[in-house]
Amino acid sequence: MSFLELRRVSKSYGAGPTEVHAITDVDLTVERGSLVAVMGPSGSGKSTLLTIAGSLEEPTSGEVLIEGVSLQAMSRNDKARLRRRTIGYVFQDFNLLAGLTAVENVTLPLELDGLSAKKARAVGMNALEELGLGDRATHFPDELSGGERQRVAIARAVVGERHLLLADEPSGALDSTNGEAVMRLVLTACKRGVAAVVVTHDAQLASWADRVVFLRDGRVVDQTTPPPSPESFLEESSPSSPLR
């Protein structure tokens, strides 16, 4: 069973002559432990797809299932619990709360979910240490570099038992070295069994994914096939390598 499944999901805004179709009949499945990238230009519906997958927005038609359970069948409370416990979000502008320290930002969803402050702090510190930010835990967001802020955002998204990571242009304005670091963190989370969806216009970020889905004008138009093993690829590519 797929961890996340979108079935013929459409979303439109407005009505009549001003109606805008953000996404149309999108099918998407993401297994646990796998990373799917959704690639498309600005305005192709990438962010809408992500907010619907994360239950932040309702589709106009179609169905979203998380662990086989349809979001439509869930109460508002159930959905709120799902967002607190199961889904982690990473946004382009990080969305850290300026008045909270790094570790407080990470532990906020845990505390909202009823975990004691002490336990939450221990889990949060652990998550930050794993990302090499142990010594930055008590710093406020404006005291952190862009790369550090994004690592905090990722720690917050995967802390606790979150199994679905949804990231919208997660490398934001970071340089390519930091962008690569971000994708390595996402991949590490996937190896622990997290299902991840990253939407991006950046082919270098998308190339970290197991599968890349291409979106154009709100529709899935294509996707990559699973790549062969690295070894066989290297053998194959060597003779024609432009570096020769």
Binding site: Q204, S207, A209, V212, T224, P227, P230
Partner: peptide, 10 residues
């Protein structure tokens, strides 16, 4: 992009 995926896997 498939080629890039293969390089990235390396």
């Amino acid at each position: 992009v498939e080629l890039m995926q293969q390089w990235t896997r390396l």
